[in-house]
């Protein structure tokens, strides 16, 4: 009996050891699989499939009739073998132009305002603070209308200029706070070193403070730039044929509501992703230089 018992114990312990080993191995394989890029791709595709299915179900319940094949001609096409821009691409290019101008101007406004707020000049600080609070605490749409309907006739500027001005003044107010934070983040020792070397205020900002500040504020500044691109959709309210306005026009002609809006959204996405990518490449370059 004792011999048989011993055998049984031996058999049992060996068996359970084997099971444990297999479970461990399985778990390890599972972890490796879950961490691989392949599994990430699969997970992403599953998510997209689920969202697509949800959308499909939703529109089916509304009785929506998808007609994606009619969309491409509104983006671009070939006529007589020549490339022609559709209204959406035209709109995209205008959105580009407005955003680019506004971006440059907004950063100028932001930088100047930040410098004024830090300056020793009392009037400078008052003006900068007044601009910031006024612009930041009123809606962009109201500012745009005010500029276009009230100031533009007085100043004799067109709708494009008014739109760019409104957008850059608005985003510039936010950018100024980002710039100010960046400038203040440069330690006092850097200022003192520059001072004791005899560098003037301009040179100190130009060579010491701003290069360090801008590196640190690139991430929030990028967010602000992305905001600007999306906020530029508001210029459609003063009859500028940007991407949003063109989308509305196409929809009123074709009733492809969902298809066109999704396309418009995708085009905005392309612009902003390109923008973010360019900045992150820049950021990496700067980091290498550190």
């Amino acid at each position: 009996m004792s011999q048989a018992g011993a055998l049984a114990v031996e058999f049992n312990s060996g068996y359970s050891k084997m099971i444990q080993y297999d479970a461990k191995q399985l778990r390890r394989i599972w972890f490796v699989l879950m961490r691989s890029t392949a599994s990430d791709v699969v997970k992403f595709l599953l998510l997209v499939a689920a969202l697509t299915w949800l959308m499909y179900r939703g529109t089916e319940m509304m009785g929506y009739h998808w007609q994606w094949h009619r969309v491409p001609r509104y983006i671009a096409g070939f006529e007589d073998g020549r490339f022609t821009r559709g209204p959406l691409l035209d709109g995209l290019l205008l959105t580009f132009r407005i955003s680019a101008w506004s971006l440059v101007l907004a950063f100028c406004f932001g930088l100047v305002t930040a410098l004024l707020r830090i300056s020793n000049s009392f009037m400078g600080r008052v003006i900068a603070r007044g601009y910031l609070e006024l612009i930041r605490n009123t809606p962009l749409l109201v500012q745009l209308f005010f500029l276009y309907f009230v100031l533009a006739p007085v100043l004799g500027i067109g709708r494009f200029t008014s739109a760019v001005l409104a957008l850059s003044l608005f985003e510039g107010a936010y950018a100024s706070e980002i710039f100010r934070a960046g400038i203040l983040s440069v330690t006092r020792g850097q200022w003192e070193a520059a001072y004791s070397l005899g560098l003037g205020t301009f040179h100190t900002y130009r060579y010491i403070v701003l290069p360090q500040a801008i590196r640190r504020i690139l991430p929030p500044l990028t967010s602000q730039a992305v905001s600007l691109v999306k906020d530029s959709a508001l210029v459609s309210t003063v009859a500028i044929y940007d991407l949003t306005m063109q989308g509305q026009v196409v929809i009123s002609e074709t009733f492809l509501t969902f298809e066109i809006w999704f396309t418009v959204a995708a085009l905005y996405l392309v612009v902003t992703v390109v923008l973010s990518t360019v900045v992150s490449v820049m950021e990496n370059r700067l980091r290498v230089a550190d």
Binding site: G189, Q190, E192, A193, S196, L197, Q212, A289, D290
Partner: peptide, 17 residues
């Protein structure tokens, strides 16, 4: 005076960039 008087700091204050 700033040009003619050099200064060396405890925390070096080199320009890191």
């Amino acid at each position: 005076i700033r040009k003619e008087v050099g200064m060396v700091f405890q925390s070096f204050n080199l320009f890191p960039h």
